[in-house]
Design a protein around this nucleic acid. Structure first.
Lengths: 214, 214
DNA sequence: TTGACCATTTATGTATACATATGCAAGATG
DNA sequence: CATCTTGCATATGTATACATAAATGGTCAA
């Protein structure tokens, strides 16, 4: 590990948590992780502090770190927060997207229609859809804020299309209605539809939480 | 230094930056700060990383830290972001505030009318006004998001009432109109008025930036 | 004179030893 | 028997030495 060890450890831990390899409540001990990664405690320590800042880790007894646990109410608040921020971005995008960005958005919609029922392919298109809106709002700080929040929702979103085939069709319809509002420059409608879209994806996540907490 | 040195150094640095004691672009060198605070580099290092995360510090050549510089566009984006988030909170508060919270909000309005033209007194009431709305939205994550953004706007807000007496009267009127919308449970109107309120406070900050960058 | 190269300087990055806080359990004491 | 104390175990917190990257300036050769 020659350069930027702390950074790579941070990324590695995020990947594990988001992928579900580390379950909520699992302890994150500096010494243990250091041995596992073959480095000293120092870079691990930095990575853990950043994880805490990002809201993926939490501290408990004796200031010990562990993977953040979510109660049902916390998850609802988190999705509401992410949803409201993304709704703001959708509203701004309705006013501000360039012609090129509008065409990109249309193209992504068509791809979504064409890709069939493959959850992986659709997941990738879904990501590009949201990215395009985020960029189209032309506010880097709001975009970064949404990224921060989504880092936390991501662990619950992954199951969205994998576990529920019906969700895919619903999502496609919602995307189309959001895009229509944006392309019509109807900011209020874009905001409302995006908000409802995120809310409906929350249902799936809440379901997942309920099963994990059994 | 017995307990939580890094934390106090972080707070101390924030205070200095927000108060304007450290100007944008000023270097933040681990060794120098360590000697100044009478500790080793380690806790200073942690504080600087947190400052970077919070968006108050930046890194340049040789990964050296310095107090973040703001261009005019950056400041506009920042205030837009903070304004949009606080507008969301105002809209949520319009639906969700309890009766007690509504009465608190009214009381704060009256205090604002009664306090005369003392900028310090009004500044404190101003803070409580925004705090009450933030709490009334009943979403801790959005509230924390707003706090993060306001950490950065704060350095530019402080001058708001000190440098411009007229701003105080304007602010009072805007607060009243926001509160009226919230108390009438008119979420859309509350959102719009809060958004415009933050925008008008941006004008003063932009003015300050222009003079500092001379 | 100019250009390339290397040493120096100066900052952060990492490893490691030691300090400190704290929950827990065992034992002393009323 | 209950409670308070105290020592221990285990985690993070801090100090410090050493490693490393990169800009800078100086020297030597073409």
């Amino acid at each position: 590990m020659s350069i930027r060890t702390a950074e790579s450890i941070f990324d590695a831990l995020i990947a594990r948590i988001v992928a579900g390899d580390m379950r909520p409540g699992e302890p994150l001990v500096e010494q243990a992780l250091a041995e596992q990664f073959g480095v000293s405690r120092t870079p691990v320590r930095e990575a853990l502090h950043r994880l805490e800042q990002a809201g993926l880790a939490e501290r408990g007894l004796r200031r010990a770190f562990f993977v953040r646990k979510m109660k049902a109410e916390d998850l609802a608040e988190l999705f509401e927060a992410a949803g409201e921020v993304e709704s703001v971005l959708a509203a701004l995008a309705a006013h501000r997207m360039s012609e090129i960005e509008r065409h990109t958005l249309s193209a992504i919609l068509s791809e979504g229609d064409a890709c069939g029922d493959d959850p992986r392919a659709y997941g990738e298109i879904n990501t590009r859809f949201h990215e395009t809106i985020k960029t189209g709002a032309h506010n880097a700080i709001l975009a970064a804020t949404l990224d921060d929040l989504n880092l936390r929702t991501q662990a619950w979103r992954v199951a969205n299309f994998q576990e529920n085939q019906r969700r895919l069709a619903t999502s496609r319809a919602e995307h189309r209605s959001i895009a229509e509002a944006i392309l019509a420059r109807d900011a209020d409608e874009a905001r409302r539809r995006m908000c409802s879209h995120v809310a409906s994806s929350y249902i799936v996540a809440a379901d997942l939480l309920a099963r994990r907490n059994l």
